[in-house]
Amino acid sequence: MTDKTFKLNTGQDIPALGLGTWQSEKGKVKEAVVHALKAGYRLIDGAYCYGNEDEVGEGLAEAFKAGVVRREDVFVVSKVWATYNTRVELGLDKSLKSLGLDYVDLFLVHWPLLMNPEGNDDKFPKLPNGERDIIRSHNHVDTWKQMEKLLATGKTKAIGVCNYSKRYLEELLPHATVIPAVNQIENHPALSQQEIVDLCRDKGIHIMAYSPLGSTGGPLFSAEPVAKIAEKHGVKPAAVLLSYHLARGSTVLAKSVTPERIDENKKLIDLDGEDMKLLNDYSDKLTKEGKLQRFVYPPFGIDFGFPDKS
């Protein structure tokens, strides 16, 4: 499945499967990137906030030098962090320097808020009481206007957003002269976020799914429909959860630094209509019962408009 792609609204092809690097163990990211590229992965997802773009860059450089892959054949993603949402080009420049690249293929707004750019920490400034130091007067549309200007610099080929709810997208789109190419969101059967997926499809915004297994340890592996489909196809539950996104027309990010798991994660399957009905019914049931599971929600103290958190 590493050669399957989708078409963005920019005309670019984006791989259906990518290597995620969030929370990857320090000292192992470089080798993970090299191994993934050797194994056929062509999308590497990173972010300034992850604190490991130097290692990602080292892995890319090694793979390019060894002739494993050419720069133009790898889709590299980075994100502007919340302390740089009024200085997005500076945020991009910092990532490019760490990555050792002249451009990224996609640059995303990591979260639609502004943390104090002049606070007591570059990434996580805090107030004296320990809360996040957030500039609540900031409008996320202003960040997007800066993102649009990046396209003329050649430092990114496309721009998009992360963690945008339907409400936030509906606030943004009337003011956008460039429609986001991607919305990267937490997505899995226990958090299908169908209202966002449907809106994005309608507007030509591609969904990129993170935390597709739920979270560390794969809490969704034992979900009844996942286990049932895995048994039917003779595959591991992870293959079902990753394949779910391809069936939905979304790109999925599989995070690992273990060579065996990186190899295993590319062994995806074609889920049939019966499989998807089982998974969709499971999502609908959790929604009706108010039992949706969101595993990634930093303590910003802001209502981002997600129904399960509002």
Rank of each mutant, 00 (worst) to 15 (best):
M1Q: 06
D3I: 09
F6Q: 08
L8V: 05
N9S: 15
L19D: 00
T21D: 05
Q23V: 10
K26T: 15
G27Y: 15
G27H: 09
V34L: 04
R42A: 13
I44H: 05
Y48A: 10
Y48L: 10
V56S: 07
A61N: 01
E62W: 14
K65V: 11
R71S: 08
D73M: 12
W81R: 01
Y84I: 00
D93V: 09
G100K: 04
L101V: 09
P112T: 06
N129F: 07
D133F: 09
I135Q: 06
W144I: 03
K145D: 08
M147Q: 08
L151N: 05
I159P: 01
V161F: 13
Y164H: 14
Y168S: 12
I179A: 03
P180A: 10
V182N: 06
N183Y: 05
P189C: 13
L191S: 13
S192N: 08
Q193N: 12
Q194W: 05
Q194M: 07
Q194T: 03
L199W: 02
I205N: 02
I205R: 02
P212N: 13
L213E: 05
T216G: 11
P219E: 14
L220E: 03
L220K: 11
A227L: 07
K232A: 13
K236Y: 13
A238Q: 12
V240D: 10
A247S: 11
T251K: 11
T251N: 14
T251F: 13
S256P: 00
E264Y: 12
L268D: 01
I269G: 03
I269W: 02
S283T: 11
L286I: 09
T287F: 10
F295P: 01
F295H: 13
V296E: 00
P299D: 15
G301F: 08
P307N: 06
D308M: 14
D308Y: 05
